[in-house]
């Protein structure tokens, strides 16, 4: 009986750990995706500017308040516009930017296919 209890305890413990890993938000990952608006080409993670320090405090507060990563980005985009994030969400305005790499990849594939086919014919 004791052994069963220990096994159940270990299973519950491991499950809790797995769940904790799933919901845990790493502030540094968010900082890396936030642009420091007053710096030259630096993210909030890289910058020690006043603005970056404040941004870090606010993001940490929001994480402590239980906000998800998506909610934090949405809040900051609402206040500073999409420029604040390095990876903007997909929308009508930036649709072409998101789809372009795949389009180029597909076109490249077609070109290679045509070239190979042409070589075979010769």
């Amino acid at each position: 009986m004791k052994k069963i209890k220990i096994v159940i305890f270990l299973i519950m413990f491991s499950l809790n750990n797995v769940n904790a890993e799933v919901i845990e938000i790493k502030p540094n990952e968010i900082f890396k995706n936030l642009r420091c608006l007053i710096c030259q080409g630096q993210s909030v993670a890289d910058s020690n500017s006043d603005f970056a320090q404040t941004m870090k405090l606010v993001v940490r507060d929001q994480i402590n308040d239980g906000k998800s990563e998506k909610e934090i980005y949405e809040f900051l985009i609402e206040k500073y516009g999409e420029w604040i994030v390095y990876k903007p969400p997909l929308n009508k305005a930036n649709f072409i930017l998101w789809i372009l790499p795949y389009l180029v990849f597909a076109i490249g594939g077609v070109i290679i296919f045509l070239l190979l086919k042409k070589r075979e014919n010769y």
Binding site: L37, D50, F51, T54, L57, V58, K79, Y80
Partner: peptide, 13 residues
């Protein structure tokens, strides 16, 4: 004091 409220107003300087 810490600039936290300013973020809600989109302030950056």
């Amino acid at each position: 004091e810490f600039g936290k409220y300013s973020i809600n107003f989109g302030i950056y300087g």
